[in-house]
Design a protein around this nucleic acid. Structure first.
Lengths: 148, 148
DNA sequence: GTGTCTGCAAACCCTTTGCAATTTT
DNA sequence: AAAATTGCAAAGGGTTTGCAGACAC
């Protein structure tokens, strides 16, 4: 977990001008444990920076993502989610189609699959963006899959 | 690859009333090699059924998917895609973030991962809906990843 | 001062919905 | 005749964009 100064410095290092909006948005993503939506960033960041605009949040999140400071996660349905990039903690996502709950899975689980696909097809899987859908233990048990 | 009659029968078996719209839409998805968007279904089906409405296409695709006749695939970005369900040919998707190209991968590749996740976490991965993102051989080679 | 960044508002895209008319059973 | 399905048109949600003014550098 990085401090405010580190984050601001990271912005500079990426060639960004350091505006209050960028600093607060990045700090908001960093402070959030888990994967935050643009809307959630907007609401949280606005408390510290009244007048902040949702369009700015979207533009900033996109920039930060392209710069590699944050990760984008698309659960398929609904909104995009973001999280501070942590090279020491790569992970995939498990999304339950029954209850919509999301879980994390250490990227290491997918290593063998990644290695095989790379070796055989030359396709370089981004293990930090893997999204696996299915049924969690609870929903698999009660079989609420798609019958409900 | 099923014939027209089989498809119509499949509709009946699922308890659907057989309307021209449903028949044509299902046939359109079936005839398409690959994963087709709602818009593409609409355009193709409209040639055979002028006056067909896009809302009907969406409603029908949703029904067919819930009945298990077709599969839904969410590439993350952009539109949903559909394909005729083929139990004999389950597959995952590889999406290249460089060139946006989509590839198929036999579901068997993910079997070990699925088995481990099931055994350890009780999470039942739906191997037919797996979407793996990354870089294809070409894009990985020229490293157009996200710098371009 | 220069070029980037922001706020605003409107547009955008894909998808969903209410409802009356139509069609299948 | 009853119930499901369609077309239409409008709304919906999340996201993007053009532009003029404001700001970091």
């Amino acid at each position: 977990v990085e401090g405010t100064q580190d984050l601001v410095q990271a912005l500079r290092d990426c060639g960004f001008r350091v505006t209050p909006q960028r600093a607060v948005i990045l700090q908001t993503v960093a402070a959030f444990s888990g994967h935050i939506t643009a809307q959630e960033v907007y609401e949280a960041a606005q408390k510290r920076l009244p007048g902040l605009n949702l369009a700015t949040v979207y533009r900033t999140l996109e920039s930060l993502q392209q710069a590699g400071l944050i990760d984008l996660f698309l659960p398929g349905t609904s909104q995009a989610r973001f999280s501070l990039r942590d090279p020491d903690h790569p992970h995939c996502h498990l999304v339950c189609t029954g209850c919509r709950q999301e879980y994390e899975l250490p990227a290491s689980w997918a290593q063998r699959l990644s290695a095989e696909v790379r070796a055989q097809l030359g396709f370089e899987i981004d293990a930090s963006h893997l999204t696996l859908t299915g049924l969690c233990r609870k929903c698999a048990g009660s079989d609420q899959s798609r019958s409900g």
